[in-house]
Nucleic acid binder design. Structure first.
Length: 819
RNA sequence: GCGGGAGUGGCGGAAUUGGCAGACGCGCCAGAUUUAGGAUCUGGUAAGCUUGACUUGUGGGGGUUCAAAUCCCCCCUCUCGCACCA
């Protein structure tokens, strides 16, 4: 027997499978489709680490298993090439981003082939390819036509380090998603997509998705639906006699009798109108200072102590006609609600802190359980019975909120209202490396979509961004100056490009028919393959890509292009692989392990098997080279147990061993089948190891099982095939099993009959503690088991003469005797 | 503070509906074979002592049950996400 030489096997089988076109896929109406998608990566210069394999190898195993189950499997790969990461890398290395993308995706593809992921490479796509991004532009125009794309000038999130504007999602927590620096504001005219119009659908449709609870919770939280009421406070400027309506948003209308002041955000547009001349300078200075601060500074400072200024102006509480002072303070956010609040210090912690500092009265109006708690020291936040609340006194908070909202509508002083945290999606970027926004600005016609697609990104030598907030494309004068498609007059192209997340909002559709040139996708192919049956990637996309892609899918559904409302039926997040020091793998820590070195040392099969075996799919795990050495040893054991016992040699049949072998085979087939279907790869591998241990321990009895042994080996190789394709096919060939490759075999079934043994071991407990064991024939009845248990010497000894008070029998498992 | 997830040997982790805790692997110990081994094979490996068909043991404390890692209540720790959202 020659030794297990993984290198030889890899060199032998790769070209064979390639010639067979094993991984190519097409629409076949007779077969059930299965679409398994890995998040398409941005190909970074660092290449793949074994951490990426934690995603790609398990999905590959699923795909191979599904093929063996008879499914027509779509498993594509592509490159999220447009966007900031590629451009940053290009600037750093002085290489054109197109070149960077080409080099890096070559590396990725090579590495993916190294571990033999079964992608259909004929469907490879690249979001920076004009044949792809012309359709991204097409969808931009579609959103424009549906009134879902608009331009708006305002203070935008701006990352000074990256010199780029950010969407709300990309600037979560006041931190840039790319570089981690603090985000500031910059006044810019930008393109937005009206994702807020889809907030309710994005929220409610989550319920039916088979996604990790954490991701769903994050999206719900991000959408942030809250039910409340808008109430109008009439504001009067005593100096100018100017009066106007100040709408405030509250979720606690039940507390309005305790509203003792109002607060406007520093950005509120009406400040100028209501501030008195005496207070003017102070208020304006405060507002200007607040606006200049970064969100992070504002939050950090204001959490410690509240700041604000009195405007000199008063507002009328519409419920009790009390005159309350109006303040400007930075703890009220410009972007939420109406940027103005009614403040109830008795029942809101923030208002309480502010009222204490500024000496504003605190009026208690909610009594939990009917008992006033006192509110001088701290606010009472809980619901309760209303007190001091006019005709509403005595109601419970929840009924009060409903009645008081009805009252507001009757009196025309307000209405029930629903608000969301999610903001419209800012999509324009002042960057070179992206899909140009296909809009032409004409003085006569305004913003006009360019239907002549693609709007090709012009070649530029210097594509570095600057601090101006203008795109480098603005410097490509020849490209910018054009004619209006509507009136033919002189016009200028929009010089911004789309954020990378726009390009990735529809790529999963393109994979169904990646070579279409006169439409974004073939509707028939999309109907056949989509929605995605299994989508796998890291959790970092929770409130970015995953929410954007859901939004676009719904827009396309509304347009009649799709017949489904959710793009990804099942979502799973793979856990991260940490270095052997327990730290995230990174260049600076020098703890990166690459698949290349592991494949060179132990082979692709051993790496694949270890990735599956190291722990649960979702778990964060530490890399251990001893671990991969273990799976390598296992493969060597498989090699020898299969080859050393091959060939037929007639001996006396051992029926007991045959039954035992059948039992172990059926048990393993069942366990591996069920585990692979539930993403429990680690226990599937463990089951195979147990099985091989069993075979190995009984190898000298192989001939006594005759053809049953050979059949067991056949099944073992099929079970291993999705996980370790090289050794499986090599052994399949050497065993002369029928069919040209093991991966095209049908997945084995198991016979439940084989799982029934002649006898079973029953545990005998006394008061829940194991005191004896006994073997009984399978199917022994409750009474018989009880009788046998009680007559065991050990049990009689423990029980003495007394009759047991109670005996519980679990047939086939245990007996518990209570004396 | 709010929301999600998780706490089991020296380590990674197993354990359908509550029913033998620690599968499988790593590491370690002993033995065999070997010129040698970071190779291979065999056996052992939760802790404790009074070495027993013993006792204790799944973050801590209570509870339900014949029986709890699993169910219920309280608490602690870790981790991820969000966070002045009125």
């Amino acid at each position: 027997m020659d030794p297990y030489d993984f290198k030889k096997l890899e060199e032998k089988w790769k070209p064979v499978w390639n010639r067979m076109g094993l991984y190519r896929t097409g629409v076949e109406s007779g077969r059930d489709p299965f679409y398994c998608l890995d998040y398409f990566p941005y190909p970074s210069g660092a290449g793949l680490s074994v951490g990426h394999c934690k995603n790609y190898i398990p999905t590959d195993v699923i795909c191979r298993k599904k093929r063996m189950d008879g499914f027509n499997v779509l498993h594509p790969m592509g490159w999220d090439a447009f966007g900031q990461p590629a451009e940053e890398y290009a600037i750093k290395t002085g290489t054109h981003p197109a070149e960077v993308t080409r080099i890096n995706s070559d590396t990725y593809r090579k590495q993916m082939k190294l571990v033999e992921t079964s992608y259909d490479w004929e469907r490879e796509l690249n979001s920076s390819d004009p044949g792809y991004y012309m359709w991204t532009q097409y969808f931009f125009n579609l959103l424009f036509d549906r009134g879902l794309a608009y331009q708006f000038e305002n203070d935008q999130m701006w990352c000074p380090a990256c010199r780029i504007v950010l969407s709300n999602e990309e600037a979560a927590g006041g931190i840039c998603w790319r570089c981690g620096d603090e985000v500031t504001r910059k006044k810019l005219k930008q393109w937005f997509f009206r994702i807020t119009e889809y907030a309710d659908r994005l929220l409610y449709d989550l319920d039916d998705l088979d996604w990790p609870e954490g991701i769903k919770a994050m999206q719900r939280n991000w959408i942030g639906r809250s039910e409340g009421a808008e109430v109008i406070f009439r504001v009067h400027n005593p100096e100018t006699d100017f009066e106007f309506d100040l709408p405030v948003y509250t979720t606690r209308l039940d507390t309005i009798y305790g509203a003792t002041f109002c607060v406007l955000a520093p950005e509120h547009p009406d400040i100028e109108k209501l501030v008195t001349s005496e207070k003017h300078d102070e208020v304006m200075k405060y507002a200007a200072e607040a606006r200049a601060k970064s969100d992070l500074e504002r939050t950090a400072a204001a959490e410690k102590k509240k700041t604000g200024v009195f405007t000199g102006c008063f507002a009328l509480n519409p419920y009790n006609s009390e005159k309350v002072p109006v303040y400007v303070a930075d703890y009220v956010l410009a972007g939420y609600g109406t940027a103005a609040i009614m403040a109830v210090p008795a029942h809101d912690e923030r208002d309480h802190a502010f009222a204490v500092k500024f000496g504003i009265p605190i009026v208690e109006v909610i009594a939990p359980g009917g008992i006033p708690r006192g509110v001088e020291e701290a606010a009472t936040v809980a619901d309760g019975q209303l007190i001091n609340s006019g005709s509403f006194t005595g109601l419970e908070s929840d009924t009060a909120r409903k009645r008081m909202a009805e009252y507001a509508e009757e009196q025309r002083i307000g209405k029930p209202d629903v608000r969301y945290r999610i903001r419209d999606w800012l999509v324009s970027r002042q960057r070179y490396w992206g899909a140009p926004i296909p809009i032409i600005h004409c003085e006569k016609c305004g913003a006009v979509p360019d239907r002549n697609l693609p709007v090709i990104l012009p070649e530029m030598d210097n594509f570095e961004p600057d601090d101006s907030g203008r795109s480098p494309l603005a410097r490509a004068e020849e490209w910018v100056n054009t004619t209006c498609p509507q009136c033919g007059g002189p016009a200028r192209r929009d010089t911004d490009t789309m954020a990378g997340f726009v390009c990735s909002s529809w790529y999963f559709l393109r994979f169904a028919s990646p070579h279409e040139s006169d439409r974004p996708f073939d509707p028939e192919a999309v109907k056949y393959w989509l929605p995605v049956d299994l989508y796998v990637g890291g959790a970092e996309h929770a409130v970015m890509h995953l929410i954007y892609a859901r939004f676009w899918t719904k827009v396309m559904y509304d347009e009649g292009m799709l017949d489904f409302i959710e793009p990804f039926s099942v979502l799973k997040n793979q856990g991260m692989i940490l270095g052997n020091d327990g730290q995230k793998m990174s260049k600076s820590k020098g703890n990166i392990v690459t698949p290349d070195e592991m494949v060179a040392k132990y082979g692709a099969d051993a790496l694949r098997l270890y990735i599956l075996f190291m722990g649960p799919f979702e778990a964060e795990l530490e890399w251990s080279e001893e671990g991969i050495a273990g799976t390598y040893r296992f493969l060597k054991r498989v090699w020898s147990v299969v080859l050393e016992t091959a060939g037929s040699q007639s001996t006396e049949k051992d029926e007991d061993f045959i039954a035992e072998l059948r039992y172990n085979t059926a048990r393993t087939v069942k366990k591996v089948t069920m585990d692979l279907d539930t993403f429990a790869f680690n226990t599937a591998v463990a089951a195979m190891m147990e099985y091989v241990n069993f075979l190995s321990a009984n190898r000298e009895r192989a001939y006594a099982a005759g053809s049953i042994w050979i059949d067991s080996i056949r099944k073992l190789l099929i079970l291993m095939a999705p996980m370790t394709p090289f050794i499986s096919d090599e052994l399949w060939e050497r065993m002369n099993f029928p069919g040209d490759t093991v991966i095209s075999q049908e997945w084995p079934a198991w016979d439940e009959q084989d799982l029934v043994l002649d006898s079973v071991e029953i545990v005998v407990q006394v008061k829940g503690k194991i005191r004896a064991r006994m073997r009984v024939p399978s199917g022994t009845g409750t009474d018989e088991i009880k009788k046998r248990a009680l007559s065991l010497d050990r049990i009689e000894e423990l029980l003495g003469d007394s009759e047991p008070a109670r005996v519980i029998v679990v047939p086939g498992k245990l007996v518990n005797i209570i004396p």
